[in-house]
Nucleic acid binder design. Structure first.
Lengths: 213, 213
DNA sequence: TAGATTGTTAATCGATTAACAATC
DNA sequence: TAGATTGTTAATCGATTAACAATC
């Protein structure tokens, strides 16, 4: 029982949730694996298979009740509560993240912002006071914060990640373009725009860039 | 000959390139598939298999000459030239992207920044003047820009993407939390922090968030 | 030479898809 | 009822890994 769910399936659930929420906001109340698949560029069979790992959420002939499925997915992903997160690094990226409007409705709350620059400490970013990184471990430990967004310079990324782990953080979304070494059990996701851009240039016509030559 | 290379392989090449560049900067001159794999959390067999799609870049017994392999990967990914990119949306995220220091050395140059807010138009972001979005199609067409970073509000994302495509853009890195509809042949990559965060909460202990209850 | 490591083949593993009985 | 769509099984497809001859 309770066989391990493939991680690739888990990775698609937030996309299903996002699309369903979008449909719900448009006022739609039911949908089908076919419609959902069309929107996401995924086969309907895959969506049904993915969902079947967790239960039977649909009805033959009519499909899925959107609000019900949203609720189920939220529970599966542990989004039935609000996760407090910390943003580490209050540079341009840290600011952009702190001002991101999509967190609140989707299960997250920016509870802490840290930086090592005394100039920035004390400043307020979208209502959150920037604290010095020296206080970070104590703050996060006390509040049992589990997730952090890492937006520090590359050179500082690994040591800062080490501090986060010492602080009890178990999930890191890192914007630094390096692979972090973390203990087993700590979740890490990476976001590096250049990696995504370089993946696309492979498919682009390099000569079109300079059409004159 | 020249069988189609799996996209999943293409997606790993930028990671290899990044790790190799890191090693080169540390002064290392050769590496092995084993060492590279360790750093990336990928099996050595996979790295050798991936590279073998493009040629024979290593030597038995000694491994790979780092600078040579970097050069090969750059060519494969069409990074032997600098790609001009446009940033659309000059809010917090657009600013963060415009100030990102990692583009120049990794094959990209922020050539244009656009926004629809007259207040922002004319302002300079990291040395680039913000232009009005009404001028966007003409500017990008004339300069044959192929790639854009989409950092506009969600509601405006699809229509802005439509404009980009009209302008001849063939690669979009979108930060909007929706699936874009684009013609075949247009590359799209997505970056949505919340999707990545929600993928991690699945593995987190939801009760630890409120340890008192 | 002995040790190391490649490129490649074949085997394994896992994910996706097609198909369909069940049923709303 | 007839049409639509689910959940699931089996078949297919593709990706990863193990193993090893070749060779530096």
């Amino acid at each position: 029982m309770a066989t391990e769910i493939p991680d690739i399936v888990i990775g698609r659930l937030p996309l299903y949730l996002r699309a369903l929420t979008h449909l719900a906001e448009k006022g739609q109340t039911t949908t089908s694996s076919h419609e959902l698949g069309q929107r996401l560029g995924i086969s309907s069979a895959q969506i049904r298979k993915d969902l079947s790992h967790f239960g039977e959420f649909g009805k033959q002939g009519t499909g899925y009740h959107i609000n019900f499925l949203i609720d189920q997915l939220r529970h599966i992903l542990h989004l039935n509560l609000v996760w407090s997160i910390a943003i580490v690094g209050a540079g341009y990226l840290g600011h952009a993240l702190a001002h991101y409007q999509g967190f609140e409705q989707r299960g997250f709350r920016v509870a802490w912002v840290f930086d090592n620059d005394p100039q920035r400490v004390g400043e307020t970013v979208n209502g959150v006071e920037v604290r010095h990184i020296n206080d970070m471990i104590a703050c996060l430990r006390e509040e049992h914060v589990q997730m952090a967004l890492l937006a520090v310079p590359t050179e500082a990324a690994q040591e800062t990640a080490d501090m986060l782990i010492e602080a009890g953080i178990t999930a890191i979304l890192s914007y630094a373009p390096i692979n972090l070494k973390v203990p087993v059990g700590v979740q890490v996701q990476y976001s590096d725009p250049v990696v995504q851009m370089q993946r696309m240039t492979y498919y682009l016509n390099a000569t079109a860039q300079y059409p004159e030559t």
